[in-house]
Amino acid sequence: MKRPHLVHFLSIITDEYIAIKASVTMKENSLAQGNNPVDLEKLAPSFPIQAFRLLNAYEFKLKIVGLDENQNEIYKKVFDSDSYGNFNFKIPLRDETGDVVILQLYEIGKEPGLEIHLGTAIPLKITDPKKIVICDFDKTLVDTRYSTTREVYNSLTKPLDSFPTLVKSVDILQAVIREGYHPFILSASPHFYEDAMRDWLYQNHIYTAGIFLKDYRKIFSFLEADLTPKDLKIQGLYKLNHLLDILLMTGIPRELVLMGDNFESDPIIYLTMAMVLKQDHEPWKLWKIVKSQDSFQLNKKQNSQFLNKIYQLNNMITRLDYEPSLKIYIRKKAMETQIKVPHAFEGRLPLIELYDGMPLLAKQDTGGEKDDITDAKIESHPVESN
Rank of each mutant, 00 (worst) to 15 (best):
V133N: 03
V133W: 02
V133Q: 03
V133A: 07
I134Q: 01
I134V: 13
C135F: 00
D136T: 00
F137M: 11
D138Q: 04
T140Y: 11
T140A: 00
T140S: 05
L141V: 06
T144M: 07
T144F: 07
T144N: 01
T144I: 08
T144L: 08
R145D: 15
Y146P: 08
Y146F: 15
T148P: 12
T148L: 12
R150C: 10
R150L: 15
E151V: 03
N154A: 11
N154Q: 15
T157N: 14
K158V: 03
D161A: 09
D161L: 07
P164A: 12
T165N: 09
L166S: 04
V167S: 12
K168N: 11
S169N: 01
S169K: 09
D171V: 08
L173K: 02
L173R: 02
Q174W: 00
I177H: 09
I177A: 07
R178Q: 12
R178V: 01
E179C: 12
G180K: 12
Y181A: 00
P183Q: 04
S187E: 01
S187V: 04
S189H: 08
P190W: 13
F192C: 00
D195F: 14
D195Q: 14
A196C: 11
A196W: 06
M197L: 15
R198C: 06
R198M: 12
R198D: 09
D199T: 08
D199V: 10
D199K: 07
W200F: 15
N204Q: 15
N204T: 05
H205S: 14
I206V: 13
I206C: 03
I206N: 04
Y207N: 13
T208Y: 04
G210M: 00
I211F: 08
I211T: 00
L213A: 02
K214H: 07
R217T: 07
R217L: 06
K218L: 14
F220K: 09
F222M: 12
L223N: 11
A225E: 15
A225L: 08
L227Q: 06
T228C: 12
P229E: 06
P229G: 10
K233F: 14
G236Y: 05
G236F: 05
Y238D: 01
K239F: 07
L240G: 02
L240A: 11
L243T: 02
D245N: 13
D245W: 00
I246L: 10
I246V: 15
I246E: 04
I246T: 03
T250R: 10
T250V: 11
P253V: 03
P253D: 05
R254L: 09
R254A: 05
